[in-house]
C-alpha cells in the first residue's frame, strides 16, 4: 500500500512541475504549485509510515507499548506546518497574479516582458 501511495506522490510532483514549466496562464501555474505541494506532502508522510502501526495517539503512558504501536510522529508534525504555510503562499501568489492582471489586462505569462533582456 505504501508503495502505491509513494509512487502517486512522486507522479503528482512530476505533473505539478510539468504544469509550472509548460503552462502559459498564471492561474494554471499556481494550480501546478498546489499539485506539487500536495505531492511533496504525500511523500513526506509516507516516509514516516511504519508497517501495520496505528496513529500516534496513545491510550496509556507506557514507553514499551508506545514504541511498538505507533508510526513516526515527526514527519506528520512537519507536514501539518507545511500545509498551513502552503495556503498562505498560494493566497499570496493569487493576489500578485490579480495585481498583474489589473496592470496589463492579461494573464498570459508571455506578455510580461518588463524584466526580460
Amino acid at each position: 500500500m505504501e508503495y502505491i501511495i509513494l509512487i502517486s506522490g512522486f507522479l503528482l510532483v512530476l505533473i505539478g512541475l510539468w504544469g509550472i514549466l509548460s503552462q502559459k496562464n498564471l492561474i494554471k501555474i499556481i494550480l501546478g504549485f498546489t499539485v506539487f505541494n500536495t505531492g511533496i506532502n504525500i511523500v513526506m508522510v509516507t516516509v514516516g509510515y511504519v508497517k501495520g502501526k496505528t496513529a500516534p495517539i496513545l491510550d496509556v503512558i507506557s514507553p514499551e507499548e508506545a514504541l511498538t504501536s505507533i508510526v513516526d510522529p515527526v514527519p506528520q508534525a512537519l507536514v501539518l506546518t507545511a500545509i498551513v504555510i502552503g495556503l498562505g503562499v498560494t493566497a499570496l501568489m493569487l493576489v500578485y497574479a490579480l495585481k498583474l492582471y489589473q496592470d496589463k489586462k492579461t494573464l498570459d505569462i508571455n506578455n510580461f516582458k518588463d524584466l526580460k533582456w
Partner: peptide, 27 residues
C-alpha cells in the same frame, strides 16, 4: 523498503513524549 521500527527522534518522542508532556496526541 518500508520501515519496520521507529528510529532516532521518533522513538525518543514515542517513549518519553507522554510522560514528559502529558498529551495523548503526540503530534
Amino acid at each position: 523498503n518500508g520501515n519496520e521500527t521507529l528510529t532516532g527522534l521518533g522513538s525518543y518522542y514515542a517513549q518519553n513524549g507522554a510522560r514528559e508532556v502529558g498529551a495523548a496526541n503526540l503530534v
